[in-house]
Amino acid sequence: MSKKVDTSVNLNGLILKNPIMTASGTFGFGKEYEDFMDISKLGAVVVKGLTLKPKKGNKTPRIAETPSGILNSIGLENPGVEHFIKEELSYLKRKGMTVIANIAGNTIEEYCEMARILNDTECDAIEMNISCPNVKKGGVAFGTDKDVVYKITSEVKNNLDKPLIVKLSPNVTDIKEIAKSVEKGGADCLSLINTLIGMAVDIKTRRPILKNNIGGLSGPAIKPVALRMVWQVSNTVNIPIIGMGGITSIEDVIEFLLVGANAVAIGTGNFINPAINSELVDKLEEYLIDNNISNVNELVGKIEPY
């Protein structure tokens, strides 16, 4: 079949062949999904959040199912940035994939050091997680204060020639303010939303289900919040947006594009249907053909609000 439609997107210099990406922490390092699909079809793969040193994560139970969602408190278990570069990155690059490394740190200096290390590798961009709700020292404190957000964004950007994506926390009073600080700090792109902080309770034991007591909520349950935030942020900043939060269907993808996302990431959906990412690549093309849209970018931000 000859391709009749243009699905490529330009995220401020980072060109993707289509806007379908994986959300960090839900796709491992890609290999986990290879039995189910050709992962090289995807617009980009965003790998599991990396820290400077390997991390064991939180105690189990780390997962609790909630109505149309999951609470998790994994706590950034990962083999460390050096392991990723040595063992995982070149494998994905040999497949011709666009690889985005997601990084998390405890201090601004740690973020900068990881940026410097990854700058000399063949990864295509960096997504900075300043919003992990499950790590006590870092995470949220960085993502919720607009002055700190500005400082960390600009300092990391100074250590990086590759595109910088900053992932926003929804657990803030005004996400527009944070987004503006990220833009002012020089980020190339925004991604949102990370998980919403929540809790699940076992009434028999009268204890929280998660050993960490609280965790991050993801899945279809959070989609309306994510759509609202992407819409508000897209009306506030001029840098591109990767929208995510509860996407499980092509209709969900179109909704995110309409409210202003230039690309989308699928997270929890991967756990329910391990082939969803490649299915959505095909379905997006079908949707564009069926609706006589020649270029996917024509959909971006085309919602007509009241």
């Binding site: 922490g25 839900t26 796709f27 491992g28 986990e32 999904y33 599991k48 064991k56 994560g57 189990t60 139970p61 780390r62 997962i63 609790a64 999951i70 998790n72 994994i74 278990e77 991967n270 756990f271 391990p274």
Partner: peptide, 21 residues
């Protein structure tokens, strides 16, 4: 163990074996 994905992606069911996760 409680599992999210069953295929090694979500890290919900991690356990220590010989000191490694």
């Amino acid at each position: 163990e409680r599992m999210g994905c069953g295929i090694g992606a979500c890290l919900g069911c991690s356990i220590e074996v010989n000191g490694q996760m």
